[in-house]
């Protein structure tokens, strides 16, 4: 378990040839009487032939996520298809600094990018702004802390919306303009003069409302619309 309601699952998939950070898979769950349900989940791992790692947040009243988080046991099986998606994707050969904005379990595909950045050993500057309800809701908390200490080009900012830590300098609340790094601060070049290749690439992932707000703030802060890639997840059904 990553938090009280999020769990990381590791699946052995012998014919999995690998994937890029940001891509997702389709899962199909089938009950004994043949009823089935399908959902999409982001890949949490960097490319890993033979293995697929997912982190799933249980949605209260949901159909697939409570099974994956609470019920599924080692040895149980499901059908999996992927990797899917080629747009919301980062690989170490892409030039330019990277800004990641995560809302809640939207951290998962962005964590795959952070992990790839660390593993590949490139010096690409990364800034992760991770918005969570409270410190208890932060997924991958120890791993993120380790990376932040180890790697000077990786900045990790945790922003809380409901309740923060006693020594937190920011009043808990939703993502605001002041929370958004500009295209040039902390990064290499000014957006107006920089060649497109050294522009900051921005990836935003989270619930629909979060992403809409973040994308609007990013543009207000001077990030070009075509430098922002988004992945939204809606409510998973009534």
């Amino acid at each position: 378990m990553e938090t009280r309601s999020a769990r990381t699952l590791l699946f052995s998939v012998p014919d999995w040839t690998g994937h890029d950070p940001g891509q997702h898979v389709d899962l199909k769950l089938t009950s004994e009487d043949g009823y089935s349900a399908q959902r999409s989940y982001s890949l949490a791992s960097t490319s890993s032939p033979g293995w697929v790692e997912l982190t799933v947040q249980a949605v209260p009243g949901g159909e697939a996520s409570p099974y994956l988080v609470d019920t599924m046991q080692p040895g149980d099986e499901l059908q999996l298809r992927g990797p899917i998606g080629g747009w919301f994707r980062w690989t170490e050969d892409l030039p330019g600094p990277v800004l990641l904005i995560a809302g809640g379990s939207g951290i998962v595909p962005l964590m795959a990018m952070v992990r790839r950045r660390i593993e590949s050993g490139v010096a690409t500057p990364f800034h992760l702004s991770y918005v969570a309800r409270t410190p208890d809701h932060v997924i991958y908390t120890n791993e993120l802390a380790t990376y932040a200490q180890r790697c000077s080009d990786l900045t990790i900012e945790r922003l809380y919306t409901r309740a923060g830590l006693p020594d937190g300098r920011r009043t808990p609340g939703r993502l605001a303009l002041a929370d958004i790094p500009g295209p040039s601060s902390a990064f290499s070049a000014d957006v107006a003069t920089a060649p497109r290749t050294s522009r900051t690439r921005v990836y935003v992932c989270g619930p629909t409302g979060f992403v809409e707000n973040a994308a609007r703030l990013l543009q207000e802060r001077g990030h070009a619309a075509d430098a922002i890639r988004t992945e939204r997840f809606g409510p998973t059904g009534s």
Partner: peptide, 15 residues
């Protein structure tokens, strides 16, 4: 042949 996920019930609402 479908792979059965042991313990998966689901809503069983086929619409």
């Amino acid at each position: 042949m479908a792979v059965v996920s042991r313990g998966f019930g689901g809503r069983r609402q086929v619409d």
